[in-house]
């Protein structure tokens, strides 16, 4: 083989894997793929047994319509008392969870997979109150976040929302698609 060709291909072979690793890390960093979940939480268990009725019980709103997002540990300790029983025969009793005691009531031990960038103003309250004329909700939590209610672990179900997804919904539902509706 010619020397000049070797000079071209050897650096390529050496550098390519590294560049792939770097770009993949960068992508997952932007897409919040590595959002930390320090405390194990099973959505399916809580919703299946009727302990929590709907998503708003934990991911609720403030009185002025702002979305609370990820709840604090206080929401857990409301049921799982820090001095509650460790074992019980009755399956409806909320047991004491020792791993919760590592956190204070105001802590949020979970990172978010679905955080919007700074320049987007997204209002959960407005989107979730929109209804068709026959009373059906236009959007459900699952339409954007995936089937989180049936998830057993803290893995990412759906990736980051792109602007096209918002625009498609706005177009089909005859909602204004002007820039200033969401951006500032």
């Amino acid at each position: 083989m010619k020397k000049s060709l070797l000079l071209f291909f050897i650096p390529l072979v050496v550098i390519l894997p590294f560049s792939f690793i770097i770009s993949e890390r960068g992508c997952s960093d932007i897409m919040q793929k590595d959002a930390e979940k320090k405390l194990v939480f099973k959505h399916k268990f809580h919703l299946k047994n009727g302990i929590v009725k709907n998503c708003e019980d934990c991911h609720g709103y403030y009185s002025d319509g702002r979305f609370k997002g990820i709840p604090t540990v206080k929401t857990c300790t409301d049921c799982h008392d820090r001095k509650g029983p460790l074992k019980s025969d009755d399956p409806k009793v909320a047991l004491q969870k020792p791993e919760i005691n590592k956190f204070r009531d105001t802590d949020k031990p979970w990172g978010s997979f679905a955080e919007q960038p700074d320049l987007v103003y997204f209002s959960h309250k407005v989107v979730m109150t929109a209804r068709f004329s026959d009373g059906r909700k236009k959007v459900r939590c699952g339409s954007c976040h995936g089937d989180k209610a049936n998830s057993e672990n803290a893995k990412m179900i759906k990736g980051k929302m792109l602007m096209g997804q918002c625009m498609d919904c706005h177009t089909t539902l005859h909602i204004s698609n002007k820039c200033a509706v969401c951006h500032d």
Partner: peptide
């Protein structure tokens, strides 16, 4: 101040 309009829109919906 269109961000204030968005905030007030949220409040009105709430």
């Amino acid at each position: 101040c269109s961000h204030i309009w968005k905030r007030e829109r949220d409040r009105a919906v709430a």
